Simulated assay, not measured.
Amino acid sequence: MSAFIQQLPALIGVVIGALGSYLAIVRGDRARFDRERVVRWEEQRYTVYVDWARALKQTITLNYRVAAHLGNDPHPHPLSAEDAEPLMTQAQIDRDPYGEALILLGSPAVVDRAQEWVSTVMAMEAFLREARRDPEGWQALLDRQRTGRQRYYAAVREDLSLPTGHSGRWPAAPTG
C-alpha cells in the first residue's frame, strides 16, 4: 500500500494533465469552429450584398437607357420604353431572390440602406413610365440614386469591417 501512496501524486498529476490537455483541445477546437463560422457567414453576406447590388444595377442601367431615349440622359445606347419593358421585368425577377437573401442575411443597417436605394430606383422607373422629358428632374433622381448607392456601400463596408472605399461618383463624360 505504501508504494501506491508514493505513486498517488504522480497518478493525480497525470490525470490532471490529461484533463487539462483535453480541456485545452476542446476550447481550441471550439474557438476555431466559432472563427470559421464567422468567416463563413461574412463570406455569405458579402456575396449577397454584391449580388443584390449587381442585380439592382441592371435595372439602373436600363433606366439610364430609357431616359436617354426620352432625352433626359446622355447614355450612348438609348432604348425605348417598349423595348425595355421585358428587360425591366426580367431584371426585377432576377433581383427578387437576391432581395430575399439580403433580408435574411443582411444587417439591419444594410437592409435599410438597400431599401432607400431601391426606393429611389423605383422613383426613377415611375418618372420614366410617365415619359417625362425633364433633364433637371432626372438629374435630381440620379443624384438621389448615387447617394443611395454610396450609403448602401458605406453600410456594407461597416458591416463587413472593410476600409472606407471610393464614393463611386465618376465625372460625367463630356457630351458633344
Rank of each mutant, 00 (worst) to 15 (best):
T147C: 08
D96E: 14
E130P: 00
G28H: 14
M1S: 10
V39W: 05
M124Q: 15
V15S: 03
G99F: 04
L87W: 02
T47Y: 10
V38D: 15
V48E: 03
V50R: 14
L162I: 03
Y152M: 02
E130G: 00
Q92Y: 08
S21H: 12
S2R: 14
Q150A: 08
Q90R: 13
Q92F: 06
I60H: 02
A154M: 12
G148F: 00
M124F: 08
N63S: 13
R129M: 07
S161P: 10
E130C: 00
Q58I: 05
S21E: 01
E43N: 12
Q92D: 07
V50T: 15
H75S: 05
Q145V: 09
H75W: 11
A154D: 15
R35E: 12
T89N: 10
D96C: 07
P86S: 06
S21M: 13
R146P: 05
M122L: 11
A140H: 11
P163A: 00
V118M: 04
D94P: 03
S21I: 06
A114F: 01
V156A: 10
L160N: 02
R129H: 12
S80K: 05
E100R: 13
R129T: 08
V66F: 04
A140G: 09
A55F: 07
Y22D: 04
Q44G: 03
L160S: 04
S21D: 02
R65V: 00
D83E: 05
G165M: 01
Y64E: 08
L23W: 14
S107D: 14
T175W: 03
T61R: 12
E116V: 12
L79R: 00
A68P: 12
M124G: 06
P108Y: 03
R133T: 14
A68M: 13
W41Q: 13
F33R: 15
T47V: 12
L160C: 03
I93T: 07
D29F: 15
Q44A: 05
L23D: 13
L141E: 10
L62D: 04
S107I: 07
Q58R: 08
V14S: 12
T164P: 11
F127E: 00
T120Q: 11
G168S: 09
I16H: 07
G17I: 09
R40V: 04
P97G: 04
G28T: 04
A123K: 09
E158G: 09
S119K: 02
I12C: 06
P78L: 02
L23Y: 15
V15T: 12
E125P: 01
R40D: 02
I103C: 03
L105H: 12
Y46S: 13
V111G: 01
G17V: 06
M1P: 08
S80M: 02
D134F: 00
R133V: 14
Q44D: 03
L87I: 01
R30Q: 14
V48M: 03
Y152V: 08
R146C: 01
E82A: 05
